[in-house]
Write a protein that binds this DNA or RNA. Structure first.
Length: 417
RNA sequence: CGGGGUGUGGCGCAGUUGGAUUAGCGCGCUGCGUUUGGGACGCAGAGGCCGGAGGUUCAAGUCCUCUCACCCCGACCA
């Protein structure tokens, strides 16, 4: 698209009430707008990043057989009372509201109960299982304190998947398949190297561990102990010698790091399915419990983590997989030669399916265009000008400082693999 | 929820200690002109009633009371 077509603008100053780097950069670049504490709107370019992250997650969930659906934000009280999660004394970060007639409703903070409710009519027989269902939707949690920009909001975007298996063995298989998919997601998002599968508390109803995906970061709220060789970690919360033995980890191999939880998966056993009356009939006509698993990725949080991690003193440095545009095209000067050359590149890139932002602003000087391109973190930069000359393009990667002159076909070779 | 801090044009700030000309500055914005390879320059403009309410006073952005919001630390949580 052309820069002149968007309403957004970048700023040199970040708002004073934002301390977190992710929020400062994303606001300066015009990607997000703070509506209130812990609640952010996604502006056009920020939304592109968010959608790209969603797409990566979606593709990996689909690959393992996940079926996407969309649950509701408004929640009926009864199903949550059945599992004893309605009472504020049990779950204290509900947002709740009321119908005109006084009926209490919950505002979705997680979706185990409603998912069970939704799939119940379709699961009767062993032939109906196993399944994975997932959604990518907003979650609402009444946190005492929102912080760290989009890393901890009261409204945030989450991918949550739920698996339904016939046996514990089948569940374990689904669980590990999802774990492998998670590893792929973080690799594709560019944070595979610093994201660790981390053993954590499985919850009060299971003896098993849950697994968190923790990305090493100074902003982290968790402390984890990492075994770099095994690419595994253990959360400080359960860091006991007994657990180390269970996990096959040795104290002397571990390094302590702060980390941000970018995802988690955990076994639900048959707590929700049993409680909500969801069973299946096996080959022998006998009623059996369904073993569930639950798999979350904080999509908007991941965006914040990426913004924190991929940044330098000039701004954001998005990985290719999530960048709002792959190429920013900057024309310097507007002589007919330059405009002709630029238009050709722009059209060719679009025809090739490359997402390109043409900074076509006539009033913006070169330095301003460069600064904006850097701030927005677009991976590839192309400059056209009289100086570069006809038929040539100046290329620079966001991660590098040197430029080189290339031809349009050489550019396409770089971008279209 | 405990502790600390902050609210002044779209953004960043000064002014509040010791109340008093028409509330300033930078960025951004509008117009004209000159510029055009790393956030240009000149001239001329527009835009705030100082988070909100109440009070003290001849006089309040500055003092008092209440209130709302935001940030940081902690506890809690994806």
């Amino acid at each position: 698209m052309k820069r002149s077509q968007t309403f957004i603008r970048t700023t040199k100053n970040a708002p004073a009430d934002e301390v977190a780097k992710n929020a400062q950069l994303l606001i300066r670049a015009g990607f997000i707008h703070k509506e209130m504490a812990g609640v952010y709107a996604y502006l056009p370019f920020g939304l592109r990043v968010l959608e790209n992250i969603k797409q990566v997650v979606r593709e990996e969930m689909n690959t393992i057989g996940g079926e996407e659906l969309l649950m509701t934000t408004l929640q009926p009280r009864d199903i949550w009372e059945k599992t004893n999660r309605w009472d504020d004394a049990v779950v204290d970060n509900w947002f709740k509201t009321k119908l005109k007639n006084g009926t209490e409703l919950g505002v979705g903070l997680t979706h185990e109960e409603p998912v069970v409710d939704a799939v119940s009519p379709y699961i009767d027989s062993y032939k109906d299982l196993p399944i994975y269902v997932y959604q990518i939707a907003a979650k609402f949690r009444n946190e005492l304190r929102a912080k760290s920009g989009i890393l901890r909001g009261r409204e945030f975007l989450m991918k949550d998947m739920y698996s339904f298996a016939r046996t514990q063995a089948e569940h374990d298989e689904l669980y590990e398949k999802a774990a492998a998919a998670y590893t792929k997601v973080y690799e594709r998002l560019g944070i595979g190297g610093q994201t660790y599968r981390t053993a954590a508390d499985g919850g009060y109803f299971t003896e098993r561990f849950s697994d968190e995906y923790q990305t090493v970061s100074e902003l982290g709220e968790d402390t984890i102990y990492i075994d770099e060789v095994k690419k595994l970690a253990i959360n400080k919360e359960i860091y006991t010698s007994e657990n180390l033995v269970k996990l096959g980890l040795k104290k002397e191999d571990l390094v302590e790091k702060k980390a941000v939880e970018v995802g988690n998966i955990f076994p639900l056993e048959s707590k929700y399915s049993d409680t909500l009356g969801l069973y299946y009939t096996d080959e022998n006509g006998k009623r059996q419990s369904i073993i569930m698993g639950c798999y979350g990725i904080g999509v908007s949080r991941v965006m914040g983590v990426l913004a924190e991690h991929f940044a330098d003193d000039r701004g954001l440095v998005w990985p290719e997989s999530v960048a709002p545009f792959r190429v920013v095209l900057i024309n310097i000067g507007s002589s007919s030669n330059v405009m002709k050359n630029t238009t050709e590149v722009y059209e060719k890139l679009q025809q090739s399916g490359v997402q390109v932002l043409w900074d076509d602003r006539a009033e913006a000087r070169p330095g301003e265009k460069f600064a904006d391109a850097d701030l927005m973190g677009i991976p590839h930069r192309i400059v056209t000008s009289e100086k570069v000359g006809d038929g040539k393009l100046e290329y620079k990667a966001r991660t590098q400082s040197e430029t080189k002159n290339i031809t349009l076909s050489e550019l396409l070779n770089i971008l279209v693999v």
